[in-house]
Amino acid sequence: MATRKTAKKPNVSAEELLGYYRDMLLIRRFEEKAGQLYGMGLIGGFCHLYIGQEAVVVGLEAATKEGDKRITSYRDHGHMLACGMDPNGVMAELTGREGGYSKGKGGSMHMFSKEKHFYGGHGIVGAQVPLGAGLAFSDKYKGNDNVSFAYFGDGAANQGQVYETFNMAALWDLPVIFVIENNQYAMGTAQKRSTSTPDLYTRGEAFGIKGQTVDGMDVLAVKEASEKAVAHCRAGKGPYILEVKTYRYRGHSMSDPAKYRTREEVQKMRSERDPIEHIREMLLTGKHASEDELKAIDKEIKGIVIDSAEFAKASPEPALEELWTDIYAEAN
């Protein structure tokens, strides 16, 4: 990955910078707490943490408006927090409780919010890509200017249905942004061992889809790229591909011993490229915020996360009758 360029004067206000810092920190602390609750046996099954990738979703969301839709894979906690879903509801879903977004019936990988236009949380690698194009199809059919974000990883980028979708999205000019979160490892397989050509943003060329790559450890760079892609889609010019180069600090899931990469590689990323530290530094050196102000934000976030964990522990398990509900919708 390229080293970070000397930050040109960012065209953002102190308030926006603080907002990104806060949103990324919330994801980081939330995920750390989720990891802790998993270790305590309060969260079961699979649990895929977003730590290290925070700038991707926070940068992308910075260019959205009400009505825009998003859909992603099973590494979805960050996306939910970034689009404004309630940390309590997300954490309680992780613990499988009544207060969770899916009443405890979905879990870490299957959460949704109609209100926030978050369409999951999908456990089958790549399946969210045609679904995301379908969301865009529905907006185009209705004639509005909403945009859909279909997030997937470098691993999913090798699924056949992704290319079936690229073809249809380009053929029908669907307003969908394909966000490839390239964290360089598909579970334990490094990208160079799974992928014949390294530049995933060029994978749409055969279908006439424009793409670009962006540094996913720099929230401002991601935001700028997102704005460009959104403008393209809103103008009715069809789909767009953003390959966002990022890095996950933790294992693929909680049960990943991560023997496919060195501790030094992870440590180097954490100490040199951390997206939150980057913004923190920018806030301090630009005198947009004082140490004390940042400390106050840290404290506020810590409180939100502790509250979410408390809520998720206190919320009761779903009523046994819930086993038999939500299988079929009733006709209106």
Binding site: P130, G134, F137, G160, L171
Partner: peptide, 19 residues
Amino acid sequence: PITEHGFAGVATGSAFGGL
């Protein structure tokens, strides 16, 4: 196009979207 997996997914997504 002849792409059953893809268009079944696109159609399902459009149903999530209200169609």
